[in-house]
Amino acid sequence: MSRVTVNRVLLGLAGLVLLVGALLVLAGGLDLYRVWHLGQPSWWPLHSPHRPVLSEAARTRWRNRLWWWPVVIGGLTVVAALAFAWLLAQLRRSSPTELALETPQRPGLTLRLRRAALIQALEAGAGALPEVARARVRLAGRLPRLQVRAQLLLDPGADVPATVGELEAGPLAQARTVLGGSTELPLDLRLRVSGPPRTRARAPRHPHRPRVI
């Protein structure tokens, strides 16, 4: 499962837990079951506004059972470990520092390309294109499915399709050649355009008229 799906499922789960708990407390606290004449089964939690949120008896109900502490400690450990893994997934560096290139015509030779060098070459190539003011490139994923993430800032009034075409034909095509034929090198390109320069064409309040003699 991709990071997008995992994040969205877990965020939705956290939201659902919060919402259901809060609605139970609100329904009990505002006495909505009685106001709206809703019956609820006897085990229903938080049903009366005059009950404490978590009474001493409810908190210590299962304390003397043999399974209680192992379940509490095990459950908390699992939750903490999953949260830690989820947090790490957000912070992880997205691609390895070195890429191993295929050399099919020379067996026994392994070429290693530093990620930083590839990024630098792509950034320099993209930044040198006409109408590109700034270029920033990152790489994501591992080699057969390596992805280029580029952010370009274009000059005012730039020709967008032409610039994108030059980026694909120039730096990206070179990178694809370097990485070998098997890598598709999909592109995630984000373009921004700076605004037009605004010349203050304001008429002077007291124009200096040329003196006509």
Binding site: R8, G12, G15, L18, V20, G21, G29, L46, P52, E56
Partner: peptide
């Protein structure tokens, strides 16, 4: 164990939690 469900703090906290839960669901 001492605050009842109709105490203002409990209701306010539940309201905030409900809003937060809705927001997380929206983000999802």
């Amino acid at each position: 164990a001492t605050r009842h469900l109709d105490s203002g703090w409990v209701l306010a906290a539940a309201g905030v939690a409900a809003a937060l839960g809705c927001w997380l669901l929206w983000l999802a």
